[in-house]
Computed example of a mutant assay.
Amino acid sequence: MKMSIKRITALIISLSLIFVFSSWAQQGRGRGRIHGTVKDEAGNPLEGVKIVAQHLKYNTTFESRSDKKGKWAIAGLGTGYFRITATKEGYAPVYHEMKVSQFSRNNPPIHFTLKKIQVRSLNSPAIEDEASLAIFEEGNNLFDQGKYQEAIPKFEEFLSKNPTLFHVHINLGNCYRELGDYEQALKHYQIVLDKVKETSGSYEGSEVAARALASMGHVYIKQGDLTKAREYLKQAVDIFPQDETLAFNVAEIYFKERQIDEAIKYYQLAIKIKPDWAPPYRQLGYAYLNKGDYRPAVENLKKFIELAPDDPQAETIRNLIPKLEELIKK
């Protein structure tokens, strides 16, 4: 009986590792689905917003548009890290980076809020509205097409006209990252961090700084340096602990490196931020299994099944739970 449990437990843990790091299968395509909403600053739904999801390794892109209720969805995604960008003429574009799983129907929803671009006034050096927006949109379109070298001068031109919008250095860094020029990519992400420090005094609570740090982490993921990737993603979570996907990504790296206690800490943070998101419960269950702590393992695996009863791993987990409960009784 014990041998059977060990074998099943080992199988589950192996499956979890495959799940965590099967990011590059099928050239970015698969059965994954993401969805969300787009609203303006007043909370009104925005129709016709272009949503682009780009696989950060293979550059495979998927596109959708928001409907009258501001809702959008994209299907056919593989497992891996994606950048999801929302753009609409007259609004400042925004993006979100996250890990998508094609094996889960519970990828977290992404809710965008777009801000109207203001025409420059005497007291506020904002952007040159339509002209600058067109330049930025062109840069984004070139990036979405994988034309990173051509996108760079567009983002540089935009910054020359709008130097206060320093977060666009992240866009430049992303171009260099996809070109494999990691030194230049890190340089631009660092500019963002320096500007945040200069204007705010610290990174604490800054979503822009968190995105820059997360982008640095993704550079190191592409280089295969999980130790440094974890370091930067952890910093991103620590300064902006409202992003469940950042916390989850840090936990995944700790789990892969067999630092189980640290993995547990960040899975729990992801759950605290978004209690109805299923994947952290499953991974937390696997983490406790790894430690031989069957009771919390069962509790979290049951919660996972409750939230994601149709997940491909749900049946295997259902079969495992009674055997773990028998061990708890002994």
Results as ranks from 00 to 15, higher is better:
Q190M: 06
L246D: 04
G139T: 03
I13C: 05
E315H: 11
P153Y: 04
A247Q: 02
R7N: 14
F112R: 05
G201F: 09
A53L: 00
S101L: 05
Y203Q: 02
I305D: 12
S124N: 15
S64F: 00
A236T: 06
P296I: 01
T79H: 02
G32R: 00
A210P: 08
R295T: 14
E262D: 08
D243I: 04
T245E: 05
F112E: 09
Y220A: 14
Y281N: 09
A151D: 08
D129Y: 14
N59R: 12
K116R: 09
S215C: 09
L15T: 00
G76N: 07
A229V: 02
F21N: 11
E257K: 05
N59C: 03
A247K: 06
M3Y: 05
T227S: 11
T113K: 13
S14D: 07
L193C: 14
Q184G: 10
Y81D: 12
G76F: 01
L213N: 07
F143C: 08
V192F: 15
Y266D: 03
I239C: 12
E137I: 15
L301G: 05
A92L: 15
G90R: 07
H218C: 04
F82L: 00
R177C: 05
L269I: 11
K69I: 03
P309A: 04
V208T: 14
L114P: 10
G173W: 03
Q283S: 01
V237N: 06
S104D: 03
S200A: 10
I13L: 14
W72M: 02
E315K: 15
R31Q: 11
N123F: 15
K228I: 00
I221L: 12
E207C: 00
K274F: 06
D67P: 04
V52N: 00
G201C: 06
F240P: 15
Y91V: 01
N140S: 10
S202A: 14
F255A: 01
M1I: 09
F304H: 09
